[in-house]
C-alpha cells in the first residue's frame, strides 16, 4: 500500500514535469528509420472512464507485448482535442500503424487526412466515426452497438410477451454524441417500436458514470409516476441507478426490471444477485484481433472494412456460471 502511494506521488511529479516540458522527446524512438522489423503501433485510448475501458486497455497492451509489437499508448482522458494531438504526435513520430477509439463520432476528417497523406494506415477500434470518406481508415474493429441495443430490446419484448399493460421505460444514455450511446439507443428503439405498449417515458444522459447514473435515476424516480423498466447503456450507470432505486424503497430487478450493456464484473455480480435482469455483452478483449489486423495491414494484405468482436448476452443464471472467471 505504501509502495503504491509513493509510486503515485512519484508519478504525480513525473506528470507535473511532463506538463512543464510538453516536449516530444520520444519522437526519435519511433521506428521511422526502420532499423529493426518491429512494428510500431500508436494507440490512442478514450480514457479510463469505466472498468470496461480498463479491461480494453489491458487487453491491447498485453496482446501487443505478446505479438512483439511496439505499442505507443496515449490516454485522451475523454477529450477529443487530446486525441487529435496524440494522433498528430504519432504521425510526427512516423509510427507504422495508428489505432484509436474515437471519443466522439464527428470531426476526424482533417487529422485522418494528415495520417493518410503521411501514408500511415489507421484502424478504428470499438467506436466508429461518421465521416463519409471510408478511405480514411483501413478497418473498424469492434462491437455492433446497434445490434447490442436490438438484443436488449429483444429480451424486453420476450419478457413482456402476451401482456397488454403499458410498459413504461426509462433510459440512461451514455455520453451525448458517443457512438455507443447513439447506436444503443437507436437499436433498442427500433425493436420496441413494433409494439405500442412499450413507451420510453424519459431518456437522459448518465455520462456512462455511476454517480450520474444514480443522480439521474433519483430524479426519474420522482418525476415519473410509474417506471417498469430501466435500460442503461452501460453497467456502471445501471449500478448507480440500483442505489437510487434502493434508496427509494423499491427492489431493483423486481419492482423495476433492469437491462444494461457491457457485462463487466461489477455488473455481472449484480446480475447474479438478481438486481439486474439482463446484460448484453460488449467484449473489451479485442487486443489479439487488433494485433492480427495490424500485422496484416503492415504486410499489405487486404482486410475487411468491418470486423466484429465475438459477443453474447447473459441472464442471472448464466452470470452465476461465468462470474468466477470474469477477468474485468
Amino acid at each position: 500500500m505504501l509502495r503504491r502511494l509513493s509510486l503515485a506521488v512519484a508519478g504525480g511529479l513525473l506528470l507535473a514535469s511532463a506538463v512543464a516540458g510538453c516536449g516530444g522527446d520520444d519522437a526519435g524512438s519511433g521506428s521511422g528509420g526502420g532499423g529493426d522489423d518491429k512494428i510500431t503501433l500508436g494507440f490512442s485510448q478514450v480514457g479510463a472512464e469505466s472498468g470496461w475501458r480498463t479491461a480494453n486497455t489491458k487487453s491491447i497492451q498485453e496482446s501487443a507485448a505478446s505479438a512483439g509489437i511496439d505499442l505507443k499508448f496515449s490516454d485522451a482522458q475523454g477529450k477529443q482535442e487530446n486525441q487529435i494531438k496524440a494522433i498528430r504526435n504519432f504521425i510526427t513520430q512516423r509510427v507504422d500503424v495508428i489505432a484509436f477509439s474515437p471519443v466522439v463520432e464527428s470531426g476526424w476528417g482533417t487529422v485522418l487526412k494528415e495520417a493518410k497523406d503521411a501514408g500511415i494506415p489507421v484502424i478504428l477500434t470499438d467506436r466508429a466515426i461518421d465521416d463519409p470518406d471510408t478511405s480514411l481508415y483501413k478497418t473498424f474493429i469492434g462491437s455492433d452497438f446497434v445490434e447490442e441495443g436490438k438484443k436488449a430490446g429483444d429480451w424486453l419484448v420476450k419478457e413482456y410477451e402476451g401482456k397488454t399493460d403499458p410498459v413504461n421505460i426509462v433510459e440512461l444514455q451514455g455520453s451525448p454524441g458517443a457512438a455507443p450511446a447513439n447506436d444503443r439507443k437507436a437499436g433498442f428503439a427500433d425493436v420496441i417500436k413494433a409494439d405500442t405498449k412499450f413507451k420510453v417515458v424519459a431518456s437522459q444522459t448518465g455520462q456512462f458514470t455511476r454517480t450520474d447514473g444514480k443522480a439521474v435515476m433519483e430524479t426519474f424516480l420522482k418525476s415519473q409516476p410509474k417506471i417498469d423498466v430501466l435500460y442503461a447503456h452501460n453497467d456502471d450507470m445501471g449500478l448507480g441507478a440500483i442505489e437510487a432505486i434502493e434508496a427509494a424503497g423499491k427492489k431493483p430487478g423486481t419492482d423495476i426490471k433492469i437491462i444494461t450493456v457491457d457485462a463487466v464484473k461489477d455488473g455481472m455480480t449484480a446480475l447474479s444477485e438478481n438486481k439486474i435482469n439482463f446484460i448484453v455483452e460488449c467484449s473489451p478483449l479485442l487486443g489479439p484481433q487488433l494485433m492480427d489486423l495490424v500485422k496484416k495491414v503492415q504486410d499489405g494484405q487486404t482486410i475487411p472494412q468491418r470486423v466484429l468482436t465475438e459477443e453474447t448476452t447473459f441472464t442471472p443464471e448464466q452470470a452465476k456460471e461465468v462470474l468466477a472467471d470474469r477477468k474485468y
Partner: peptide, 19 residues
C-alpha cells in the same frame, strides 16, 4: 493548473486507473 493536471494523474495512479 499544475495540481489540476498532475492531481488527476495521482488519483489515477492510486486507483490503478480502475474504479
Amino acid at each position: 493548473l499544475i495540481l489540476m493536471v498532475a492531481g488527476r494523474g495521482v488519483a489515477q495512479l492510486i486507483t490503478d486507473g480502475q474504479i
